[in-house]
Simulated scan of single mutants.
Amino acid sequence: MTGMTAQQCLEAHHRRPPDEWLIGFARALRAAGLHVTADRERTFLVAVSQVGLGERRGVYWAGRATLTSSPADVERYDQVFTAWFTGRPMETTHTVPPTVRPPVRQAALDDDAASGAGPETEDDLLRARASGQEVLRQRDVAALDRAERAQLARMFERLHPLAPHRPARRHVPRRTGPVNGPATLREQLRRVGEPGPVRHHRRGVRTRRVVLLIDVSGSMSAYADSLLRLAHRFVQAAPTTEVFTMGTRLTHVTRALRERDPDRALVAAGAVVPDWSGGTRLGDALAAFLDRWGRRGMARGAVVVLFSDGWERTGPEVLGEQMRRLRALAHRVVWVNPHRGKAGYQPIQQGIVAALPHVDDFVAGHSFATFEELIEVIAHA
Rank of each mutant, 00 (worst) to 15 (best):
T2F: 15
R325H: 11
A379F: 04
Y60P: 04
E120C: 03
W293Q: 08
R209K: 03
A168Y: 07
Q188F: 15
A222I: 07
G278Y: 11
V210T: 15
F25I: 02
T245G: 05
T82D: 13
H14A: 15
A183L: 03
G344L: 07
L126Y: 05
R340F: 12
L10H: 11
T280M: 09
P98G: 08
R313E: 14
A107H: 08
V363W: 08
H165K: 14
P89E: 13
V305Y: 01
A222S: 05
G196N: 05
W335T: 06
H165W: 07
D39T: 12
V272N: 00
L290H: 04
Q349W: 15
A28T: 03
A271T: 06
S308G: 06
V235D: 00
Q188D: 06
V318S: 07
A65D: 04
R139S: 07
G344D: 08
Q346S: 11
A47C: 13
P167H: 06
S131P: 02
E120R: 09
Q79W: 15
A302H: 01
A379H: 00
G247Y: 07
D360N: 02
R300M: 06
E148Y: 00
V304M: 09
V48Q: 00
G177L: 10
V353D: 00
M90Y: 13
R56K: 12
P195V: 14
W84T: 11
A114N: 08
L22G: 01
E372S: 03
T93W: 09
H252W: 04
G87M: 07
D123S: 12
A224G: 04
G118L: 13
T370Y: 07
D19S: 10
L282H: 05
E148M: 02
A147T: 01
L212Y: 04
Q50K: 13
E91G: 06
A354Q: 07
R30S: 10
R313Q: 13
A231Q: 01
V172A: 08
R30I: 04
E376W: 06
A113N: 10
G341D: 05
T37M: 04
H200Y: 11
G278P: 06
S219R: 02
A268R: 01
I214L: 15
A6W: 07
Q106I: 14
G193C: 13
G177M: 05
A114L: 12
T207A: 13
R325I: 09
W276G: 06
A114T: 03
V359Q: 00
A107P: 03
A269N: 00
L306F: 06
I375N: 01
A237V: 02
P161C: 08
R154I: 10
P89A: 14
A150D: 03
V363I: 11
A222T: 05
P18K: 02
T66L: 14
W84L: 11
A114D: 12
A147V: 09
A330V: 03
L374R: 01
